[in-house]
Amino acid sequence: MHDRPNATEILEAVARLLADELVPATTGRLQFVTRVAANAVRLVAREIAQGDGPARAEWQGLDTLLGSLELPADTAELGPALVERNHELARALREGAFDEPAAFARVTHHLRHAVAAKLAVSDPAMIEDTSD
């Protein structure tokens, strides 16, 4: 176990340095990339804070579409295994396996949750949007 501060506390301090001190002190392209860097650090902080909860939820969602599969025991294997299962889902979609209304509803229900989980890290404000 590491001592405090934890990873997200350190990243938040770096993000504050970038956003509150370096952005006002720079101009032009350097200011733009500094703002992007601050957002990037905050994104990583949100991702760390979430742990593997979203990945486990995505796995369960894929279970309802592709049939149940045991969750990898080793957390490090979860990411690569999810990539493989999403390839399988993509193939099934391409072959028309989810064209029927009931199947379409199930797959969109899953994708809604999976994409919202990605946005919760990359752009939380967008989940709430009501576009035209």
Binding site: N86, A90, R91, L93, R94, G96, F98, V107, L111
Partner: peptide, 12 residues
């Protein structure tokens, strides 16, 4: 690089 089921759905 990786599959995007949302894009597959959109293509369909």
């Amino acid at each position: 690089v990786e599959a995007h089921p949302g894009f597959e759905l959109a293509l369909r």
